[in-house]
Each structure stands twice: as structure tokens, then as C-alpha cells.
Design a protein around this nucleic acid. Structure first.
Lengths: 133, 133
DNA sequence: CCCCAAATACGAAAGAGTTCGTCAATCGCG
DNA sequence: CGCGATTGACGAACTCTTTCGTATTTGGGG
């Protein structure tokens, strides 16, 4: 009964839009992300119908233009995808993934590094004394 | 001209075997990873032929049983996959990915956390003074 | 030398994901 | 009321991935 949705790349784009903009019509989503990549309206529509079939989206059809929203939260979805990715690529080793992620590009600002630092310190505290949950 | 191979899941399994075991025959790979998932020999063979067509593997056919090896290193491949994943799921934010990875499961041992800590400290030093490479 | 087992080549089929065209329903404006 | 534009339903085509069956080649033991 594990609810672990693993959206495809284009499904993820739509989910991201809905997470950010709240319940939206197909038109909204299409204008938001479909137009600039040159998709036709029906492409976006079909995609969202499929996602509804899969249970990724819920639909309110009380209006002529149906309103869609995700049935899954952003964070659980990211976690599930990350978990799968970590398993496939890093044999499940979070630390190896983290090390490589921190070496990549230059996105981590001072504030972000500080935040990461706090988290690491907290985890080290826990690992020192605690049972590890 | 960016060489960024993005292997599929089953391609990655084969690459992992070859990275770990060095140049191998189809038989080797099949015994190593194909058998226990119930694949037939030709499945492994075909997969490796395709990977060679894609340029992921090189082949030495001086022996009757051809010997394959990866044309790509493990780390660059992981980096490329991680970069893509980070882009798709976290809008390119390494710190967000790291935060979530550290929150996942309980894989980070004290030693690993310490190693991460050292890296974070080093990055903070650099970010304090440097241009960020 | 001949045959069998091992190996490779090749085509095909099934499944998933993505994109689009056509058709039907419906709402609102003139 | 009727027509045009908007919307939704649906099927189909195309690509990519994965899996396998069959055919062909080849090397070594009897």
C-alpha cells in the first residue's frame, strides 16, 4: 500500500506547475508550460488525463473548464524520486550522493551551506547518542 | 560536444558490473547480473550490443568471446545523471537536494557525516573568500 | 574431418511515454 | 435561436526501452 508516485519527466513539469500555482485548468497549465515548448493544447490535455488515470491528479468537473490539482505533495514525491535515484545510482549511499552533489556546480550560497552545516551537526549529535530512530 | 552519457536503468546495471569487475565477456555479465533476475543470455547480449552502438561500451573481438569495457567512467556518469536529476527535480538547487538526502533513511554513519562535515567546512571557506571557481 | 556446444547477429514484439489530429459536446454572444 | 469558439474524449502514430526467439558462425574434442 506504499504510495510512492514516480512521475515521468513531463508529468513532473505539470506537477511542479500545479504545486506552485494551485488548482488550475488545462488552459492554465498549457499557457504556463506547454506553449513555450511548442506543444499543442491537446498534448497538455492528454497528459493531464493520463495523470488523472494514474491517480496523480484529481479533477473538479463542476465547471465547464475542469480544474485539476495534484493528489500528491511535492516533498513526498521528491523524496520518493530521490530514494529511487539514490538506490539506482549510488547503491543507496546518501553520503556518496551528497558528496558529489556538493561538488557540483556552484549553487550553494553561504546561507545554504550554513543551513546544511546545521543539519549535519544535528545528525552527528543524533548519531553520537541516539538509536538512530 | 559535451560527452554526457545518460544510461538507462538496465544499462546502468551493466556499467556498474563492468566498473566493478573490469573488462568482461557477455557470459561474465550475464552470470553476474542477468541470471538472478531470470533473463536469458541473449537479453544481456543484445543490451550490450546496443550499448556498444550507443558508444557506451568498447569491444575487443580478438577472442571468440568478445570482451567489453565501458568507454565512460563511473564518476563522470554519476555526475551527469545527478546533474540532470537535480535539474529536473530540484530546479538545480544542490542544497535542497542535499538537505533532503540527509533526511532520508539512516545511512550516514558517523564517519560519513564527518567526511561531509569536512567538505561543507571547506566549501564555506571557499565561499567566504573565493570567487567560487 | 565432423559435429556439438558456445557465441554472435538479427528481427520482432511488447510496453511505456510523448505528441498530435479529429470528433463531439457545450457555453456564450449576437 | 444559432453559430463560433472553447473544451474534453479518444485513437493513433512515433520513439525508446526491454526482452526474447531464431538463425548463423566458429572453435575444439572425438
Amino acid at each position: 500500500m506504499t504510495e510512492t508516485p514516480k512521475p515521468t519527466p513531463s508529468e513532473l513539469k505539470i506537477l511542479k506547475f500545479l504545486w506552485q500555482n494551485g488548482p488550475s485548468t488545462v488552459r492554465d497549465v498549457h499557457e504556463g508550460i506547454g506553449v513555450q515548448v511548442g506543444h499543442s493544447y491537446t498534448t497538455t490535455l492528454k497528459q493531464m488525463q493520463i495523470m488523472r488515470d494514474k491517480g496523480l491528479l484529481a479533477r473538479d468537473d463542476s465547471q465547464r473548464a475542469h480544474v485539476f490539482q495534484p493528489t500528491v505533495g511535492e516533498e513526498p514525491t521528491q523524496r520518493a524520486m530521490l530514494d529511487d535515484f539514490m538506490q539506482r545510482v549510488y547503491e543507496g549511499s546518501a553520503s556518496q550522493l551528497v558528496m558529489q552533489a556538493l561538488g557540483i556546480s556552484r549553487p550553494a550560497s553561504a546561507a545554504e551551506l550554513e543551513e546544511i552545516d546545521r543539519l549535519v551537526q544535528r545528525l552527528r549529535e543524533e548519531s553520537r547518542g541516539g538509536t538512530g530512530r
